[in-house]
Amino acid sequence: MDHENLPYRRVSPRLIPLRQINNAIGFGLFFLVLIVTVLVIQFASPLFLLSGTAYLLYLLPVGVLVWGIVLACIIPRQVRAMGYLENRDDLVLRRGILFRNQVAVPYGRIQYVDIHQGPLQRAFGVTQISITTAGGGTASTFEGLPMVEAERLRDELTQRGYARLAELAES
């Protein structure tokens, strides 16, 4: 079945600033560590400064800073590309812009559904949902759902999973 043109439900736009904060913290800390390292190398080795290549050391932290800014610009588009679709037989999770990822989770294989919410997620009113399937593997995790929607989806997936299990037991 072609899932490309079907109406996917989108995640909360509140996921955008949450991801941008996580991006800023991660890249900011990495940038600061690199700058401190470069400064320590420069001041610990005065001969290095005379070699004329000291400016090359600054390319690494500048590259990290530029990469962090590029990712910050991509995050809104990434979040808008995320969605989920409740079909008759399965749940389809979609994410990705350049590298697209679609996972179809059959209701009959769902064992349990977890909802996770850290402090920053709680502050922005979003959650992460993890779906574990038969065989012990986590089929997928999906973030950006408001708590009310995550609870509704958890209850719906659990109910459909039990219904499929009962159908299999009858046959």
Rank of each mutant, 00 (worst) to 15 (best):
Met1Pro: 09
Asp2Arg: 13
His3Asn: 14
His3Met: 12
His3Lys: 13
Arg10Gln: 14
Leu15Arg: 05
Ile16Val: 15
Ile16Leu: 11
Pro17Tyr: 12
Leu18Ser: 09
Arg19Cys: 09
Asn22His: 14
Asn23Arg: 02
Gly28Ala: 08
Gly28Phe: 09
Leu29Glu: 10
Leu29Pro: 08
Val36Met: 06
Val36Gly: 04
Thr37Trp: 12
Leu39His: 09
Ile41Lys: 00
Ala44Met: 08
Ser45Arg: 09
Pro46Asn: 03
Thr53His: 15
Thr53Leu: 15
Ala54Gly: 15
Leu56Gln: 12
Leu56Pro: 10
Leu56Phe: 15
Leu57Asn: 11
Tyr58Gly: 07
Leu60Lys: 03
Val62Gln: 04
Val62Cys: 07
Gly63Asp: 00
Leu65Ala: 14
Val66Glu: 02
Val66Cys: 02
Trp67Asp: 04
Gly68Asp: 05
Gly68Gln: 02
Val70Ser: 01
Ile74Tyr: 08
Ile74Lys: 06
Gly83Pro: 10
Tyr84Thr: 06
Tyr84Cys: 04
Leu85Arg: 05
Leu85Ser: 05
Leu85Phe: 15
Asn87Thr: 15
Asp89Ala: 09
Leu91Lys: 08
Gly96Ala: 12
Gly96Lys: 10
Ile97Trp: 12
Leu98Gln: 09
Phe99Val: 11
Phe99Lys: 13
Arg100Met: 07
Asn101Gly: 06
Ala104Ser: 14
Val105Glu: 04
Val113Gly: 06
Val113Glu: 08
His116Met: 13
Gly118Phe: 11
Gln121Trp: 03
Ala123Ile: 04
Ala123Phe: 12
Ala123Thr: 04
Phe124Lys: 13
Phe124Asn: 12
Gly125His: 02
Val126Ser: 02
Val126Glu: 01
Thr127Phe: 03
Ile129Leu: 14
Ile129Lys: 02
Ser130Met: 10
Ser130Pro: 09
Ile131Pro: 07
Ile131Thr: 07
Ile131Gln: 04
Thr133Tyr: 00
Ala134Trp: 01
Gly135Met: 03
Thr141Trp: 10
Thr141Asp: 12
Thr141Phe: 12
Phe142Gly: 01
Glu143Met: 11
Glu143Val: 02
Gly144Ala: 01
Leu145Lys: 06
Pro146Arg: 03
Pro146Cys: 01
Met147Trp: 06
Met147Pro: 11
Val148Lys: 12
Glu149His: 08
Ala150Arg: 05
Glu151Trp: 01
Glu151Tyr: 03
Leu153Thr: 07
Arg154Lys: 14
Thr158Met: 05
Arg160Asp: 00
Gly161His: 03
Tyr162Gly: 00
Ala163Glu: 14
Glu167Tyr: 07
